[in-house]
Design a protein around this nucleic acid. Structure first.
Length: 476
DNA sequence: ATGTCC
């Protein structure tokens, strides 16, 4: 028999039920057991169950519904942001030499609801969140792990008015000064009269939050230091086959200084802090948790942006100090200087709209933009000029990339093998473990071949005297 | 990458 004034789903929604399983259960209970009640009375009852479900736990008929309502109330709200199902394409360079894990990570990144475009550079390998060698453009958001732990990590090159011959004839002096003016090792910095100074320490951005402010002293102490891992300071010979107008350099060979390091403990602490914050504010499915992003229109997003830029300036200051000290120590004139960072996010334009481009271990390679792509401690590195390839989001690789993990390299490469390679290439090495051995890296020539569409080579840099952090030990 | 879990 048709009841004219029967309660329906809309009535329950109006009464405060949320669409879903509970509403469905409520409707079926009503149909089965309260069919004879007037709509008014039924609604009062259902409201009571919803507001005081604990009162119905002994009710034979309503117990199940009451339990569901209590369970739902106790369950944390599911505020997980869903990933997109349809994966947009991204471009890969040198795909044959890129490990599967890096490709998978890039695919996940492309599923972010904020993702606009992506690309994978030929030195790509797996990292946290975005792979190293990954480029990701997103809409109005910034991903702390899309930038990486070592915010603003960069290469800096100084070309000197000094001949190859002078270097080879005075290697003891170059070695002495290299050791005297550089500082390696985790946690290490300069103390007392050896502390460096730079305007970056007075940057008002240090005052933006108590969190950033508390890092200022450590930043002051570590200013001009290099850290560990794959960071280095090295003397080498740069060769320009033709003269370069932009740098005002005549063709020929010159002594050059190449440095690779980042924002030290300061940047690492900033990265850790905002990654944690992003993970709290932006819940993503398990496979994407490390891609948590901060909305650029939020205080957290703006704070990270300012702190990231400060870390970038700090990293640049570190290189500037190293180059200044060593230039003075050897009594040289700098003929040209090139610098570029590869762990950072930039505001750029993509298809006419402003996007945030993350380059995690990728070199900016906009048209005519210069950069340095190092090989290994024995393989050449290259001074390059970007070609502005759109499908690469104006990027290139930031090095050769590893072909062996650190642990694998330590297990498989012997000290004798490493020394033989160094001798063969006439490279003096100070510090470094087997995990940084040349054999642990991909062939830079293959990597350069894979990115011919992305950069033009301007000059070749050959390392001759390399300093890196000691093998897992402390150092002063 | 970083004194490698605030």
């Amino acid at each position: 028999m048709e009841q004219k004034d029967k309660i329906n789903g809309y009535d329950l929604l109006a009464a405060g039920y949320n669409a879903g399983e509970i509403l469905g259960l409520a409707l079926s209970v009503l149909e089965e057991h309260f069919n004879t009640l007037s709509k008014e009375v039924a609604l009062v009852l259902m409201k009571k169950v919803l507001t005081r479900p604990e009162d119905f736990l002994d009710d034979e008929v309503l117990e199940k519904l009451a339990t569901k309502i209590i369970e739902a109330a106790n369950r944390p709200a599911d505020d997980t942001i869903a990933l997109l199902n349809n994966v947009s394409d991204y471009t890969m360079y040198g795909a044959g030499h890129i490990e599967e894990g890096a490709k998978q990570q890039m695919s996940v990144a492309m599923k972010l609801p904020v993702a606009v475009a992506g690309a994978l550079m030929p030195d790509a390998h797996q990292g946290y969140g975005l792979p190293i060698g990954g480029v990701l453009a997103v809409k109005n958001a910034v991903i702390p792990y899309g930038v990486g732990v070592d915010i603003g990590c960069r290469m800096a090159l100084s070309v000197f008015d000094i001949s190859e011959v002078h270097f080879f004839e005075n290697q003891d002096m170059y070695k002495r000064e290299l050791i005297a003016h550089t500082k390696f090792g985790a946690g290490h910095g300069f103390h007392g009269r050896y502390k460096a100074d730079h305007a970056v320490l007075d940057n008002p951005a240090f005052n933006m939050t108590p969190f950033v402010k508390q890092l200022q002293d450590k930043a002051a102490s570590q200013l001009g230091s290099s850290g560990g891992g794959n960071h280095f300071v090295e003397w080498g010979i740069i060769e320009f086959e033709t003269s370069n107008e932009e740098l005002n350099i005549a063709s020929g060979k010159y002594l050059a200084l190449l440095t690779h390091s980042g924002s030290r403990g300061f940047g690492a602490t900033v990265a850790g802090h905002y990654t944690r914050l992003a993970k709290q504010l932006c819940k993503l499915p398990k496979e994407a948790v490390n891609l948590a992003y901060l909305d650029m229109d939020t205080a957290a997003g703006q704070e990270y942006w300012l702190a990231m830029n400060l870390a970038g300036e700090y990293a640049s200051a570190c290189h500037e100090i190293i180059h200044q000290k060593l230039t003075k120590a050897i009594g040289a004139q700098v003929l040209a200087r090139v610098e570029n960072h590869h762990n950072f996010a930039w505001k750029e334009f993509w298809n006419g709209e402003e996007v945030i481009v993350h380059r995690k271990g990728a070199t900016p390679a906009g048209k005519g933009v210069m950069g340095i792509i190092p090989g290994s401690m024995t393989a050449p590195g290259f001074l390059v000029s970007g070609k502005g390839a759109t499908s690469a989001i104006n990027s290139a690789s930031h090095g050769a990339g590893r072909q062996m993990s650190r642990t694998k390299a330590i297990q498989q490469i012997s000290k004798a093998e490493m020394q033989a390679v160094l001798k063969e290439h006439q490279v003096t090495l100070i510090g470094a473990g087997l995990d940084e051995a040349p054999m642990a890296y991909k062939d830079i020539n293959i990597v350069m071949d894979s990115q011919k569409e992305l950069v033009d080579i301007i000059a070749k840099f050959t390392p001759k005297m390399v300093r890196m952090a000691d093998d897992g030990s402390r150092e002063d």
